[in-house]
Simulated assay, not measured.
Amino acid sequence: MSPELRRQMIVRSTLALIAEHGLALTTRQIALAAGISEATMFQVFADKDELLHACMVEAARPDEVLRELAGIPLDGSVTARLLEAAGALEAYLTRMGTVMAYLEASGHARAWRESAASTAGLREVHEAVESVVASLAALLAPEEDSLRLPPGQIAQAYFDLLFARSRVLGRPLSDSQLPGLVQLLVHGALMTTDAPRG
C-alpha cells in the first residue's frame, strides 16, 4: 500500500472513530480500525496532533457538498432552496462540527492552531468553507435585487448558524427546526413589517 493510501485509510478510520467514541478515542483504537500497528501509524504521522490536523482538513473537504448544492434548482422558492441546502450540508457540517468539538474538548484545538503544520491546513479549511459559502450565495442570486444584504453575507450567516449547531455533540438541528430557522433568515424576526415603535 502506498504511503498516501495508508495516510487516507488512517484519517478515515480516525474520523469514523471520533464520531463514535469522542474523547475516549485512543491511538490504539485508531491503529486497530485502520488494520495497522501503532508503530506504523506513527511512521505516517509524527504524533496525535498531526493526525488530528489531517482529520480536520479531510473533514472540511467540500467536494461532495459542492456537487449537491450545485444540483439545487434555482426555479423554486428561496425558502425551498435554503431548506434543500441545509439537507445537503448536514453530513458535511456534522463531520466538521464533530471533529472541531473533539479538538476543543480534548485540548488539541490550541495545539492544532499553533502548530507550524497547521498554517497550510487552516488555509485549506478556510478555502473549503469559502467555496461552500459561495455555493450558498449562488442559490440566493435570483433574489439579489430584493435582498437587504449581499448574497455572500446572508450565505455566511446561514452557514454559521448551521455550523454552530453542528458543534453541539448529540444535538443535531432537527428537521422540524429547520423551516423555522429558514423563515427567520428569509423574513426576519418580526411577524409584521410595521416600523418599530419608540
Rank of each mutant, 00 (worst) to 15 (best):
S166L: 06
R148P: 10
L173T: 00
A111F: 04
E127V: 09
T98E: 09
H108V: 01
G152Y: 06
E144L: 08
L184R: 13
V132Q: 01
Y158L: 14
M100L: 13
L161I: 15
L181C: 04
P150H: 03
L122I: 02
A138M: 12
G170V: 09
D175F: 02
V129M: 02
W112A: 10
P150A: 14
A138N: 03
L149N: 04
S131K: 09
V99G: 05
A128E: 03
A138G: 12
I154N: 04
A116N: 01
V168K: 00
H108L: 14
A117D: 11
R148T: 15
A117L: 13
L149H: 08
A128P: 14
A120Y: 08
A155H: 06
Y158I: 09
A157Q: 10
G107K: 00
V125S: 04
Y102V: 11
A128D: 07
I154Y: 03
E124K: 12
Q183N: 15
A128G: 12
Y102D: 01
L162A: 06
D160G: 08
R165S: 13
T98P: 09
A128R: 02
Y102A: 14
Y102I: 11
G180H: 13
V186G: 05
V125A: 06
V186T: 12
L136P: 04
D175H: 12
W112I: 15
Y102W: 12
Q156H: 08
V99K: 00
V182Y: 05
G152R: 14
S131E: 07
H187L: 06
F159G: 04
G107N: 01
G170H: 08
D160T: 15
L161K: 01
V186Y: 05
G107H: 00
W112P: 00
D145M: 09
Y158T: 04
E144A: 13
L149V: 15
W112E: 05
R165T: 02
L184D: 10
P172A: 10
R123F: 06
E143M: 10
L122C: 13
A101S: 15
L139Q: 05
L103D: 05
L185K: 01
D175K: 15
Y102P: 03
P142A: 09
E143C: 07
G180W: 11
L178C: 10
S115E: 05
R165H: 11
V99T: 09
P172H: 07
Y158R: 06
L139V: 13
V99P: 04
G107R: 00
G107P: 12
A189Q: 10
V125K: 05
L185H: 03
W112F: 13
A155W: 04
R171H: 09
G107A: 04
L181A: 11
Y102M: 13
R110T: 15
L140F: 08
R123T: 11
A120C: 06
E143T: 11
T119F: 11
Q153M: 15
Q156S: 10
W112M: 14
P142S: 12
F159M: 10
S131D: 11
L149S: 09
